[in-house]
Amino acid sequence: MPETVLVTGGSGYIAGWCITELLRNGYEVRTTVRSGGKEQAVLDAVSTQLDPAGRLSFAVADLTADDGWDDAVKGVDYVLHVASPLGGGATDDPDAMIAPARDGALRVLHAATAAGVKRVVLTSAANAASPSSYATQGVTDETLWTDPEDPTLSPYRRSKTLAERAAWDFMDSHQGSTELVTVLPGAVFGPILTTSNIGSVGIVGRLVSGRMRGVPRIGLEIVDVRDLADIHIRAMTSPDAAGQRFLATGEFTWMSQMARTLREGLGAEGRRVPTRQVPDFAVKLVARFRDPSLREITPALGRRNRHSTAKAHRILGWQPRPAHRTVLDCAHSLLSHDAL
């Protein structure tokens, strides 16, 4: 009998690709949605890659509530906890993002351990294994934990760090057989399955459409969403992965390099991609007086710190594809979906 994997947040960008690759590898998949009305959208998205008939089922469960999680994990062999409630929005309350992410992870772990699930793979973020100071240079690895008490941290960085730390603390006190692995991705790009939830891919869309008039001096460690799904499955099945953190970052790429890749690789469709780099002071001024949404990126201006994925290569045999391929595949996918 094929093993069954629960993927949380099936309507999400990363979750959709995890579901697709699990089905492609012969697993039965159950995925959570916050309401039954989202089931068809997930089926439609996955169906763009393969026929999920008879092998994809659904459970209604919300990370912000206890209801539904015991049923969601019943009979499941593994859990990929990919979803994280963003919450918060523009609120100044730091707990608006932190509490849902942390409590949601603990709800999944409580249910999974009670059900005797073999292993839970939790999606964290490279930002949970980064120096608190963006000025730090060099290469860091999974042994580093971001300091959640650093007052300069954005709510997102703090929420991912505290959620992962809470998960490990829970497992340290758990005496059962369930194992935990965490995967810490960088900036996730690549093809989309649907236009309903494109996540960080929107950055590429803004570049290709010309809505981004200039390029800030920001570097991203680009990982392809397909490679991210692959490392989740490897982390789920590798005997040596139990109890480990794995960074899943790709090539460090300045946004100006991304823009050049798009401009040169898309031909006529790349004619609107900006090439002018915006000075740091200009980005900070806009963030302060015109666009508060940019405030979270201003500390990253000029950041050169990178993460090592040597551990994932050594233990999991994971090898991500080059960043330029991911960026171009992402752009072609957005264009084909008319998602600009």
Rank of each mutant, 00 (worst) to 15 (best):
A112V: 01
T136A: 15
T143R: 12
L63Y: 04
S132Q: 03
V42G: 11
V82F: 02
A99H: 13
K118H: 06
D95I: 00
W145P: 00
H110C: 02
I98Q: 03
A90Y: 11
A128N: 08
V120C: 08
A61N: 11
D103I: 04
D147W: 05
W145V: 06
A129P: 03
V117L: 06
A65Q: 11
A45Q: 01
T48F: 04
T48E: 12
A115V: 01
P100E: 04
L106R: 11
A111R: 05
L86G: 08
A115P: 00
Y78K: 00
G75M: 01
G138W: 10
L144S: 11
W145I: 02
S57N: 10
S84F: 01
H110D: 15
D67A: 15
D92Y: 08
A135Q: 12
L80M: 15
D95V: 00
T146P: 03
V117N: 07
V73Y: 10
T64H: 00
D71T: 07
G75Y: 04
Y134K: 11
Y134F: 09
A101T: 10
D66T: 06
G138T: 14
D92T: 15
A129I: 10
G54C: 08
Q137Y: 07
H81Y: 14
M97R: 11
D71H: 15
T113P: 04
R119V: 09
T146H: 10
D103Q: 06
Y78M: 01
T123I: 13
H81D: 08
P52H: 12
L50I: 05
M97N: 07
A126T: 13
A72L: 07
D44K: 12
T136H: 12
V82R: 02
V117C: 13
V108W: 02
D67F: 01
A135S: 12
R55T: 05
L56C: 03
